[in-house]
Amino acid sequence: MIWDKEKIKSILPQREPFLFIDEVIEVEEGQRVVARKYLDPKADFFKGHFPGNPVMPGVLIAEAMAQASIILFYTTKPAIGKTNPDYYITNLNATFKAPVYPGDTLIIEASNFKIVDFGAVIDAMVKVNDKIVATMRGSFAVVAKKSQNGK
């Protein structure tokens, strides 16, 4: 394990129950990160999606890829990442290839397509048991956080 949850929380603004990275297991700074997320069968979203037939919502799989993408941005632009900017998703083009179930472990890989100071385009994929279950090209803008008084 390279990065534990405390380190991840210092980078990602998301928190439980909307934090979809447990640990970062590989880092090639500026190029690629690989992260892991265990899907607790007790997670709330499984209760409603769907009763008696729990499947992880695709939108949450995309969120996991987006969170890994933010971590990749941080490794590429650490000086900006350390300012805790806001990250705004601007486009997601995701494909879901297989259902994901309670108890599965997601292996989430994010690769640098192009990262600049003010945004990023990332290629990401998710594997379960070495099988690709989702792929995505996503982009997000990186914006300095406004202060509490809006300035």
Binding site: T90, F113, K114, V116, F118, G119, A120, V121, S139, A141
Partner: peptide, 13 residues
């Protein structure tokens, strides 16, 4: 937009 410009740049590179 600026995000698409980043994608065009990445593709060119």
């Amino acid at each position: 937009d600026s995000m698409k410009a980043i994608e065009i740049t990445g593709a060119i590179e």
